[in-house]
């Protein structure tokens, strides 16, 4: 399957984390770490240097946007996708300004993930679509 990414999941909800792990692994990626809040996500990023981060916008203690800023300080090229529900447009906008590269609306599905990841990693998307062509 295309390029396998190492992913860091950041979300305070257990159910969301489980869901994301299942979806990402279904797409052929590897979840290297799950973080429950902003602070630990930063340390996790430093340690694992993942290819991709999925970040929940609303978390207690440090919110998603601050976390994005801090990660971007460590690695300006970090690929971060925000996970958000409806009605949080202003926050998402700020996250994008802070350097996030995309966002997904809940409920999360493998298709939405694939599309969002695809936009970031264009060659990955091309590989996937080549595969689909082969399957047909």
């Amino acid at each position: 399957m295309g390029r396998e990414l190492n992913v860091l999941i950041v979300d305070d909800s257990l159910i969301m984390r489980v869901n994301l792990v299942r979806s990402l692994e279904g797409l052929g990626h590897r979840v290297v770490c799950e973080a429950k809040d902003g602070q630990s996500s930063i340390t996790a990023y430093e340690e694992y240097k993942p290819d991709l981060v999925t970040m929940d916008i609303t978390m207690p203690d440090m919110d998603g946007i601050t976390a994005v800023e801090k990660i971007k300080e460590i690695d300006p090229d970090a690929n971060i996708i925000m996970v958000t529900s409806h009605g949080q447009e202003a926050m998402v906008m700020n996250a994008l300004k802070a350097g996030a590269k995309g966002y997904i609306l809940k409920p999360v599905s493998p298709e939405k993930l694939r599309e969002s990841i695809g936009k970031i990693f264009i060659e990955l998307e091309n590989q996937v679509s080549d595969e689909l062509l082969d399957e047909e």
């Binding site: 447009e89 998402v92 906008m93 994008l96 300004k97 350097g99 996030a100 590269k101 995309g102 966002y103 936009k119 970031i120």
Partner: peptide, 20 residues
């Protein structure tokens, strides 16, 4: 939002912002 869009250089993020 509109100002952000115009000022954003990265196409990818610009698109994401437009969609918001």
């Amino acid at each position: 939002a509109l100002l952000n869009v115009v000022n954003e250089k990265n196409e990818l993020i610009k698109d994401a912002m437009l969609s918001l």
